[in-house]
C-alpha cells in the first residue's frame, strides 16, 4: 500500500481520538510528577488539529504534518507544545514534497522527529522524557525492513518498551526533575503520550493495508 496525504490525515485524526481517550490518564501521570496538564494540553492541541484538517486539505503527507506541527505549536503550550511541534515540523521537512510515503520515508520522518525533540529539549536517553520513547522507536524502525505498517509497528513497540523503561528513572529534564529522587517509580507522561501516538499511527497503517 502507499501512504498518501489522505492516509496521513486519517491517521492524525485517529491519533486525536486516542489522545482524547487517554486525556485523564495523561493528566493523572503528570499530576504525580509534574503539574497535571499534559493530557489536557494534548487534547486541546489535537482538537485544534482536527479543526484545522476540517478546513484545509494539505496535498502531501509533509504538508499534513506541517499543519499538525503549526497547530500544535500554537495551541498546546507547555513543554510538550514546542517539542511535539518541532518533532512534526522536522518530520514534515524531512518528507519534502513526496506524494506518498514508503517505509524508508517513515523511518526518516521518525528519525527527524527525534532529532527535533533533542535539538529543542536537549534531553538524552535516560533523562525520563519523551526521548526515552522516541529513541528506541527510531532504533526499532531502522532495524526493520518491511511495509510502512511493519515499520510503524516496530517503532510503536520500541516506544512502548521505552516508555515503560522510564518508570524507575530519576528525571533530569522537565518539571519532574524538580522532584529529584521522588520522580522515580512513575511513568513519564510525555513518554507515554509518544508511545500512544506511535501505536495509533501503527494501527492506522495496519488497517490501511
Amino acid at each position: 500500500m502507499g501512504c498518501t496525504a489522505a492516509d496521513v490525515a486519517a491517521a492524525v485524526r485517529a491519533a486525536a481520538e486516542v489522545v482524547a481517550e487517554h486525556r485523564d490518564e495523561l493528566v493523572e501521570l503528570d499530576r504525580a510528577i509534574g503539574d497535571g496538564d499534559h493530557g489536557e494540553n494534548l487534547r486541546r492541541g489535537f482538537n485544534a488539529v482536527v479543526s484545522a484538517l476540517d478546513t484545509s486539505t494539505p496535498d502531501t503527507p509533509g504538508a499534513v504534518l506541517k499543519l499538525v506541527a503549526k497547530t500544535l505549536i500554537s495551541t498546546v503550550g507547555g513543554a510538550a507544545g514546542p517539542l511535539y511541534g518541532t518533532a512534526f515540523l522536522r518530520a514534515a521537512t524531512a518528507l519534502g514534497d513526496a506524494a506518498e510515503l514508503g517505509p524508508a520515508e517513515v523511518t526518516t520522518a521518525i528519525e527527524a522527529a527525534l532529532g527535533g525533540v533533542v535539538a529543542r529539549g536537549k534531553a538524552a536517553v535516560g533523562d525520563k522524557t519523551m526521548v526515552d520513547a522516541l529513541d528506541p522507536a527510531v532504533r526499532a524502525a531502522t532495524a526493520t525492513s518491511g511495509s510502512v505498517a511493519e515499520v510503524l509497528a516496530a517503532a510503536a513497540a520500541g516506544a512502548q518498551a521505552g516508555a515503560a523503561s522510564t518508570v524507575p528513572l530519576v528525571a533530569r529534564k522537565g518539571r519532574a526533575s524538580y522532584l529529584g529522587e521522588r520522580s522515580a517509580d512513575h511513568l513519564d507522561p510525555g513518554a507515554r503520550s509518544t508511545a500512544l501516538l506511535l501505536a495509533s499511527f501503527a494501527r492506522s497503517a495496519g488497517a490501511g493495508q
Binding site: 496538564d37 489536557e40 486541546r44 507547555g78
Partner: peptide
C-alpha cells in the same frame, strides 16, 4: 496568559 499552569504559545 497561557491556560492554567501551562505556558503560553509562541503565537
Amino acid at each position: 496568559p497561557g491556560p492554567v499552569f501551562t505556558s503560553p504559545t509562541p503565537d
